[in-house]
């Protein structure tokens, strides 16, 4: 019999430092292949997360028909998820690097 919910320790199956988009893709594909309708992602040992990973994970998570819940998310990791969601909600104006007035050297 398949249990309704499965818990995955993210740091154990991936890394304590979540960096690449491709890794996020693999995680969601793995979740998609599980027979359990609910999945709990345990972030307790995750130390860092890149914006790219957070963005890819959030984007792909929206497209799968499975209930995913994140647990034990550190404040730092939660902030990165929030940054991604805020950017999705509205196109932010980038704080630009101002290149005006910088000397151009033609070689």
């Amino acid at each position: 019999m398949i249990s309704r919910s499965k818990t995955i320790n993210v740091a154990q199956v991936l890394s304590a430092n979540l960096a690449l988009r491709e890794t996020a893709t693999r995680l969601v594909q793995y979740i998609e292949g599980l027979p359990n309708p609910e999945v709990v992602l345990d972030f307790s040992d995750v130390k860092t997360i890149s914006r790219s990973f957070a963005h890819e994970y959030s984007t792909r998570k929206r497209d799968i028909h499975k209930q995913i819940r994140e647990a034990n998310v550190s404040a730092d990791v939660a902030k990165m998820f929030a940054v991604v969601e805020e950017a999705r909600a509205k196109r932010p104006s980038h704080t630009r690097i101002d290149f005006e007035g910088i000397p151009v050297i033609n070689l």
């Binding site: 430092n17 960096a19 690449l20 988009r21 860092t48 890149s50 914006r51 790219s52």
Partner: peptide
């Protein structure tokens, strides 16, 4: 981590 992860990505 942000520096090395994002630029490697």
């Amino acid at each position: 981590a942000y520096l090395i992860d994002e630029l490697t990505t």
